[in-house]
Amino acid sequence: MKISDCIDAGTEYCPCSLAETGECIMCSQLQGKVFCDCTNWKGVCIYQEYIWNHSQRKENRQVYRCRISAKEAVSPAVTVFTIQVKRTLARELKEPGAYVFLRIPDYPTFFDLPMSIMSADERAGVIKIAVQERGVKTKYLLQREAGRREEQQREEVLLRGPYWNGILGLKYLKSFQKGKALVVVRGIGQAPALPVAKKLLQGGNEVEVLLDRGRIAVDFTGDLFRKMGCRVLEKQLLKREDLTITEETLAYLQDSLLNKGVGLIYGGGSDLLHQGLSRLIQEVERGAFFVCSNNAQLCCGEGICGSCQTRLADGSRVKRCKTQLAALNIYEGR
């Protein structure tokens, strides 16, 4: 069955603007139906919160001006930013799937760049984010735009957050215990997989990481995974020509599911990688859970702009910035 929860339901940011406009993802009363039809209860009555908040949304997320304390270029394409944040924020960003919007100070809000958290240290009040040079916004953040003068060194960044929906299938990730899990990552997808592996290890699971350097051509997380206690295998995951999963990797995955008792696969790569993984999991039919990075085009993170809206196989549309879905629901029927 399709699960579709709102990642923000019951948090301090709920109810949000969607409640004010009758578009709440969870609550029938706030979808204009005026009667309870509460199939996705998360422990809090959103309608009650809304009425008690004088029929208004809660305060929006804040924008913080944060200092960049270090930039480490791990390859020509990838730089790891260390950003100083409040300890509370660091704690809120410790969850797998956490992300923030970064923007250069004094630039307009459409420069907001959604970035996954690679690690968060609540005691030191720092977070790490790996930035790959891709398009306009990443180039500005990396200070690689033309005509930039040396003295304009930017040591600060505007940060909006916390956001949490960077992973689909969080429910499975958080409840999976004492089993075997595969973390399959490629390219920049390595970074947000670190908190995933950490969560799985906390659940008493054995974790094996299949790592493909991908387009960024660098392994900047292998040692970190190993230090946590994961087994790391470097593998070519996708074929160069059509970006489908290589036969060797497919065979390895199949063997893992069928013979080694792997019960959960996390995909941290492109949609093509995730499609391949979800298809394999369905074909093998061993009931393994599929969890993956949320690759939607996130823009506002608040369910307002519509850029992340996706049509599912059953015809329904979901706002992927806020809706927590089983990953298989996204990739079925494609």
């Binding site: 029938s28 009363q29 005026v34 009667f35 309870c36 509460c38 009555c45 009650q48």
Partner: peptide, 8 residues
């Protein structure tokens, strides 16, 4: 109930 109905 539930809560939403009891509230409305």
């Amino acid at each position: 109930g539930p809560m939403g109905n009891c509230l409305r």
